[in-house]
């Protein structure tokens, strides 16, 4: 039972950054129709940026939690204006090629600069210890990651479902042409939405920095799991991305605890089951298939 609770907290923490990154992927796919293969490298850049900020400028975790997403937002805007906006009128094949190529470039640039061995990162002050819950001790950092990610997801959900900005994004996502005909400048919304999605991936990277190995290739496996999450949750569904993110985090943690090396396979077994039962994913609409 004690071990189960520990795996649960560990799974919810991993689920936290899965959920954040998948949320970014879902928002980008929804608003732009772009399947972003570079999302894993944006996550990696978030983690690397935190390590570099600490090493070079002495900027600590708490500040990085704010600074890195802002930097990644700006980076996302640049990428959108420079590269991604040209994809929107082209065949979807080009979007695979461009974002996949972009991720290869980013990974190699980081490798060239920082090598292949992991960059060091310390747990932030105050979150290094263990927290007593009932009879078990869980790492307080993992609990923090879970609660923080959950809070960010709730804020994003609130903005999307209750504000005018969210209303416009939902309309532009569902049927962009119609939104244009109703006087909404959809193109003006696309760039910041992409930047926002990239910032979420970067934020996931910051959260992952203290307890995952920070390497150039850390996003490579991550993106595969992210796609599994998006498929499980339903392509383009924001709620689905968050729920499936936490679900996959838990499956992975229980897998590591009880099934050893089988853990990664379990994620894809879950994906296969979901596709068999609900082809559109847990929260996907039928058109999304």
């Amino acid at each position: 039972m004690d071990a189960f609770l520990q795996y649960t907290v560990q799974g919810l923490a991993a689920g936290g950054f899965y959920a954040l990154a998948a949320l970014g992927l879902a928002v980008i796919f929804g608003a732009l129709g772009v399947v972003n293969f570079a999302h894993g490298s944006f996550y990696m850049l978030g983690a690397v940026a935190s390590a570099v900020l600490l090493d070079v400028l002495g900027i600590q975790f708490w500040a990085a939690l704010v600074i890195v997403p802002i930097l990644m937002f700006i980076f996302g805007i640049i990428i959108e204006l420079l590269l991604v906006q040209w994809l929107l009128k082209l065949d979807i094949l080009y979007n695979f090629l461009l974002t996949f190529g972009l991720s290869l470039v980013l990974v190699d640039l980081v490798k060239r600069q920082y090598g292949v061995s992991g960059l060091p990162y310390e747990l932030p002050a105050g979150l290094g210890g263990l927290l007593q819950i009932g009879s078990v001790e869980v790492p307080s950092y993992q609990l923090f990651v879970f609660l923080f990610a959950l809070a960010v997801c709730l804020v994003v959900w609130f903005v999307l479902s209750k504000t005018r900005v969210g209303m416009i994004v939902r309309a532009a996502t569902e049927e962009p042409e119609r939104a244009r005909a109703l006087g909404i400048n959809v193109s003006a919304w696309v760039t910041p939405v992409f930047g926002f999605g990239v910032a979420l991936a970067g934020l996931a990277g910051v959260l992952a920095a203290p307890f995952r190995a920070i390497t150039a290739t850390m996003g490579t496996n991550f993106i595969i799991i992210l796609f599994a999450i998006v498929v499980i949750g339903g392509l383009g569904s924001v709620l689905g991305a968050v729920v499936a993110g936490f679900l996959v985090g838990l499956v992975e943690a229980y897998g590591q605890g009880y099934a050893g090396t089988f853990s990664q396979v379990l994620i894809f077994v879950l994906m296969a089951v979901v596709i068999a039962v609900r082809p559109a994913g847990l929260f996907g609409r039928k058109e999304a298939v």
Partner: peptide
């Protein structure tokens, strides 16, 4: 652009009515 025309005062009611399901 379509949005400039809409802002100038042209209102489109498409044959499928164009109601948003997510709104």
């Amino acid at each position: 652009s379509p949005n400039a025309r809409a802002r100038a005062g042209i209102g489109w009611v498409p044959d499928d009515r164009g109601i948003y399901a997510s709104l």
